[in-house]
Amino acid sequence: MGVSTPTNNSQHCKQTNKKRSTVVSPMGNHQQLPPTPYTLTKSCIPRVHKESIEERKLANRLKLLNNELKKQVDSYKKTNNQLGQAIKILRKYDQETKILLLIDKWRSISQGGMSYMLNSTLLKIDRMGGYEELRRKELEAEKRKIEYQVDDRLQDEMDNVLESEEFKALPDEDQEEYKARMQNRIDEMTIWKEKELLKLDEKLKSNSEKEMTMRELSQRLKVDYDLVFAE
């Protein structure tokens, strides 16, 4: 009996311990869960956010500095390049002097050439009856050119169309419209021709020059007058 009693007590104690541990474990887990995830979340997100902001600021500052340095480098390169080229020219300045002499030479040749050509042209003009006669002939040639440009082809073309079977087969309304359109074109060309011919007549009358000038000759020969006669 005495032996039996202690055994029963031990079993009872064990059972009690088991129950307590079971109760305590869930409580422990419950207490630990809330703070751990919350703490991690707090510590991670703000830190990453701050770092990314700081990094971005730093990157921007470095970029701005980089751009500024690049501008300065480019500016110095340009200046140094100009200095280098200018120095090359000055080191061989006798070549520069030579160019100036060559400019004088070719200007003299050009002026001499123009002078010869002017004399030659004046002689030719005299042989054909004088400067006014030359201008008159030139303007007459321009008139003939205009006359040719506005010959009667348009009228002939219209007449041919009007006499064609296809045209006659058209409704009267269409025929009248076509005639009006063609006549309008002919009228416009006639007006243009008369205006151009009038311009040439005025040009001949108002011609103030009595002789071929060096400037006019330069223009005819397609020579830059101001370049040749700069001095």
Binding site: W106, R107, I109, S110, G113, L221, D224, L227, V228
Partner: peptide, 17 residues
């Protein structure tokens, strides 16, 4: 540029002559 232009004119005129 001036030298080149004048030379061209000079050569052209002397050819005409």
């Amino acid at each position: 540029k001036e030298y080149n232009e004048l030379r061209d004119v000079g050569l052209r005129l002397t050819q005409l002559i």
